[in-house]
Amino acid sequence: MEANVTLDCLGLYCPMPIIKTAEKIKELTIGEILEVISDDVGIVEDMPNWCKMTGQEFLCIEEEGDEFRAYVKKIV
């Protein structure tokens, strides 16, 4: 999936990926897509839940070996 901004969270455990996501999403404008790369398996459940709490749109997660690429669209 094409993203406007990519955030590298490789090697980081919970809660860092969502803390970094929360910081990064502020830099995006409405409608832009953020890609978060993480190797913490917790991201699979955490990213959709984080989106639910913050009102952002969760698009999908792509799995590539040990890495996950989560896509979030900024809507608020």
């Binding site: 809660p15 984080w50 913050t54």
Partner: peptide, 12 residues
């Protein structure tokens, strides 16, 4: 602190 920072990063 994991819960506190996680919650704060989730807009709470």
């Amino acid at each position: 602190f994991v819960i506190a920072t996680g919650a704060a990063a989730s807009g709470m």
